[in-house]
Design a protein around this nucleic acid. Structure first.
Lengths: 342, 342
DNA sequence: CTGAAAGCGCTAACAT
DNA sequence: ATGTTAGCGCTTTCAG
C-alpha cells in the first residue's frame, strides 16, 4: 500500500495539514518542521496522489495536444518534434500531455477529442492548421488555448508562431546579395496564413532592394503543399519560359520536388539554379546538393507553447499573447553566388 | 459548475448510489430507473469526474508509453505510428496514453519517467529497444508491462513482436524462386534480438531450399543500424569480391544505404543486384528504383499492444503472452527475376 | 432493487 | 505556526 499524507504526518509528528502546506510551500512553515516532513516523505517514499489532489483542486493536471492525422503521420516529424518539445517542458511542471489527433478535414459531425468531452484537460495546445469548424466547436468549451504554427488572424488566440515573413526575407536578401535578381517564388495552399506571410516576406525583400516584382516569377498552386506540388510548380515555372537564377520554395518538401523536376530537365543545381526551402527537415541534408533552408526551432516552439499555457493557467495572463519564434537561414550547397555585390 | 452525480440523482429522484450503479451497469437496476437516470444525465450533460473516480478506485486511467529519444526523433515515423496505434485503441477504452521518452542510453543514475515516479499510470507500454538497466529499474515498480517490437528472450514480459524470421524467410524465398542463389545478408547491431531473428530467417530459408550457406555473403557490422552502416556494409561486401546477385538488408535504412553504395560504384539495380529491405517506410517509394521490402503493420501493432494491456489490466491475464504480428512481402522494382525455377 | 453512509487522499478554511 | 475538520465526486458495502 502506497503511503498517504497521513502516514507522513504520523511519522513526522505533525498534522496532515502541515504536511500539505509544507509540500506546497504555501504557508510559513518553520524550517524545522519542513525538514522533519521532508525526511518523513523521503523515508516513506511518499508521493502525493494525483487524483486526490485533482479532485479537491478541481483541475486535471493534463494539457491536451491536438493536431490532425495528416500532420501526425507525415514522414517528416515536424509536428512530432513540436509535440516532444511540449512534453519536455511538461516534465518540469505538474502536468501531463494528452495527445489526440483529429481528422484532417474535421467536419461538423465529427467528434471532438475524448479528453475534451470528458473534461480531462485544463487547457489545449493546437498544432498546425485545423479547420474553422473544429476551432469553433472546440471554443464552446472555453478552455485556455494556445495555437502553434497556425492561427486565424481574425480570431484572438494565444499562439506561438514562426517568423515566416522574416525567414523568407532573409532568404531573399541572401540570394540578392549573391547576385540573383530574378528570383522565383513557388508555393501552394495560398490561403494558409503562413504561406501568405512567406510570400509577403519575399515581396518586402524585393522592394527593399529595389528589385522589380514580376508576377511571372510567382507560381501559386491550388493544391496541398507537398513534394509533388513542388515538382508541379517547377514545371509550371519552366513552361512560362521566364528567366530566373534562383528559386525560393515555400517549404522544403516543395523545394525538393522542384529540385527533382529541374534535375530531370537537365538543369544544374546550383550552377544554373539556386534554391532555398523552409522548415529545415532532416532529408534536406541528403539531397544532392544539400538543400539550403530556413531553420525552424521545433522543440523550442513546443516548449514556448507549453510555457505560454502555464502562464495562462497559473498567472492568469489571459491576454491573447503571441510569440514569434526566430528562424535561421542555413545556406548549403544549393545556393551559388553569381556575382558579389560590393 | 459542472453537474455532479448528486445533481443527476436529484433530477432522477434516486440516490447517488443508484446513479453510480446504473452508470457502471454493475447491479441489476430496473430498466425504468436506468432510463430515468440516463435521461437526467443527458439533460444535465453530466460526465463522471475522472479524478473522483480514480481516487476511489485507486487507479489512474492512464497508460504510459515509453520509448527512447532516438526512436522518437527518427525521421521515419516507425514508432510514432505505433504510438498512434495505441492512441487509436485507447480512445475506445477509459484510458489515456501518457508519453515519455528516455535517454537512448539510459544509465543507472538517469531518472525514470515522471509518471512512474508519480504513480500516474496503471501500466506501461515499452516500444523498441531499451537498455537492460532501464528495464531492471522499471520492473521494481511491478507495473503491468507490454513490450513492443523488442524483448529480452530470457525475461518474461508480454510483448507484441514482429515476425522477423518469417519476414526474412519470405524475402529469401522470393529471391530464390526468382533464380537468385547467391544472396548476401547485410546487418548491424547483431546483438539486437530482432536482427538475430532476421538473420535466422535468412539461414532457414536457404536451408529449406538446399542452398549452401556462405559466411562470405554475410556482413554483420558492429555499428548502429542506419543508412550509413548500410553503405558501409555494402562496401565491405564489395571488397570481398564474392559473387552475389541479390542482397537482403536487415532493414530499409540499411538497404537504402547499400543501394547508394552500389549505384556509386556503377552497379545497376536491379539489373545486376536485386535488393530487399525490412520495415516498409515511406521513402522506399522514392528510391530509384523503389525498394522492395517487408511491410510491418505499425498501427496494428500499437493497437494490439494496447489491447493486450487491457486484457492484463481487466481480465487479469497475467501470463506473459506474446503476439507475433504477421508481415507482408512487398516486391517492387528493386527485385529482378534472373531465371524462373520451374 | 434501492438508499444511507463511509471513506478514497488531499486541500483549505477556520481554530487554536 | 500548526492542528481540526469539512468536504471535493464518486464507489461500494451494508441495510432495508
Amino acid at each position: 500500500m502506497r503511503p498517504t499524507i497521513k502516514d507522513v504526518a504520523r511519522l513526522a509528528n505533525v498534522s496532515t495539514a502541515t504536511v500539505s502546506l509544507s509540500i506546497n510551500g504555501h504557508a510559513r512553515i518553520t524550517k524545522e518542521t519542513k525538514i522533519k516532513v521532508e525526511k518523513a516523505i523521503k523515508d516513506l517514499g511518499y508521493f502525493p496522489s494525483r487524483s486526490a489532489r485533482d479532485l479537491v483542486s478541481r483541475k486535471t493536471g493534463n494539457i491536451g495536444f491536438i493536431l490532425t492525422d495528416g500532420h501526425f503521420l507525415k514522414t517528416e516529424p515536424f509536428y512530432t518534434q513540436i509535440f516532444l518539445g511540449t512534453e519536455f517542458e511538461a516534465r518540469k511542471h505538474p502536468y501531463y500531455i494528452l495527445l489526440a489527433t483529429i481528422p484532417t478535414n474535421f467536419k461538423e459531425e465529427d467528434e471532438l477529442p475524448r479528453f475534451i468531452l470528458e473534461n480531462s484537460v485544463d487547457g489545449i495546445l493546437i498544432a498546425g492548421r485545423v479547420s474553422k469548424i473544429f476551432l469553433k466547436k472546440i471554443m464552446t468549451y472555453g478552455l485556455p488555448t494556445v495555437m502553434i504554427d497556425f492561427h486565424y488572424s481574425e480570431k484572438n488566440h494565444s499562439a506561438v508562431l514562426i517568423d515566416n515573413m522574416g525567414g523568407v526575407s532573409k532568404a531573399t536578401n541572401a540570394l540578392i546579395s549573391r547576385g540573383h535578381n530574378n528570383i522565383a517564388f513557388l508555393c501552394a495552399e495560398h490561403e494558409h496564413p503562413s504561406i501568405q506571410e512567406r510570400y509577403h516576406g519575399y515581396k518586402i525583400a524585393l522592394e527593399k532592394n529595389s528589385i522589380p516584382f514580376s508576377e511571372q516569377l510567382i507560381v501559386s498552386l491550388d493544391t496541398i503543399i507537398s513534394t509533388e506540388s513542388g515538382y508541379d510548380a517547377a514545371k509550371e515555372l519552366n513552361k512560362r519560359g521566364v528567366d530566373f537564377s534562383a528559386v525560393i520554395a515555400c517549404n522544403d518538401a516543395m523545394a525538393i520536388g522542384a529540385m527533382q523536376f529541374f534535375k530531370e530537365t537537365g538543369k544544374q543545381i546550383p550552377e544554373e539554379i539556386s534554391i532555398i526551402g523552409f522548415d529545415d527537415i532532416e532529408i534536406d541534408l541528403y539531397q544532392d546538393p544539400p538543400l539550403s533552408t530556413i531553420s525552424v526551432p521545433k522543440i523550442d516552439m513546443g516548449q514556448d507553447a507549453f510555457q505560454l499555457m502555464i502562464e495562462i493557467l497559473e498567472k492568469r495572463i489571459n491576454n491573447h499573447k503571441k510569440i514569434i519564434v526566430p528562424v535561421e537561414l542555413i545556406l548549403r550547397d544549393s545556393v551559388k553566388t553569381i556575382s558579389k555585390l560590393s
